[in-house]
Amino acid sequence: MTHPTSKLRPQRREFLKGLGAASAAVAGATTLPGKALATVSEKKPRYGMLIDTRRCVGCHACSVSCRAENKVPMKKHRSWVESLERGTFPDVTLNFVPRLCNQCSEPPCVAICPEENATYIRDDGIVVIDPETCVGCKRCVRACPYNARFMNPDTGAADKCDFCIDRLTQGMEPACVASCFNKARIFGDLNDPDSAISRMIATNTVSVLHPDEGTKPNVFYIGLDEVDENDIRPPEQYLRITTQRKQNLRR
C-alpha cells in the first residue's frame, strides 16, 4: 500500500531513490507497534511528539502560539492545522491534522543539503537549521515531503519547527504543547519507556504521516485521517482540505 500522495510526486520519489534515502522506507506501515520505538535503550533523550487528533478541535492555539514564540514571519508557518471535511450531508466527518516538522530520523532535507552543518540532527533527535551557515538554496524546502520547511525572509535561510529548543533548554514544553488546552499533544523522550509519550504510544494505535517516504518521523498521531493538503479532491467523493497555511492561495 502506498500513500495516495506519493503518486502525485513522482519526481521527488525518483530523487529520493537516487539518494538512497528511500531504501529505508517503512513500506505500508501506517501503524507502528509502540514498543518497537523504545527499543533503543540509551540514556540520551530522543524527543518526539504524539498528537491525539481525537482531542484536537482545530482551534489554532498551536498555530498562533508558535508564531508568537518563534517570531514566525506572516504568511509563513512552522506549525499549522489542516482540517478535513469528507462525506455528503448528513453523513459528514470533520477531522483535524495539526502539522509541524516531523523531526525525521531519516530526514531528506538534511540529506540533500549541500552545506556542512547548515542542517543536522542533534543528539536529542531534533533536526535543526543554522541560519548562519544555510546558503538559502531551498533544496531542503523542496525535499521535505511534509512541506514543513520554508524560506524565512528575515534570515534568508530555511526555517522550520525545532520543537522550541529554546523553551526545552529552559525546562518548558514546546509552545504548541503548552498552549493546547484540550491536551491533544504530548511531548517527551521516546527513549524513556516511562515517559508519558512512550506510554501513550505503547498503549495506543499510532501512525505517522507518509510512512512510505521512509523518513521515520518522530511525530506520531492517534486517529490520523491521512490525507493532506497536497492531495487532490478524489472524483465522486467530497473532500475538502483547508489549512491556514494556504490562505493566500485559497480558491
Binding site: 517570531k71 514571519p73 549541500p114 541560519p131 548562519e132 551557515t133 544555510c134 546558503v135 538559502g136 538554496c137 524560506m151 525572509p153 528575515d154 534570515t155 534568508g156 535561510a157
Partner: peptide
C-alpha cells in the same frame, strides 16, 4: 554549488 550567502536572496534585514 555557488550560491549567494544567507541574507542575500531576499535582501531583507534581520529584524524579524
Amino acid at each position: 554549488p555557488d550560491l549567494p550567502k544567507q541574507g542575500a536572496p531576499s535582501g531583507l534585514s534581520r529584524r524579524g
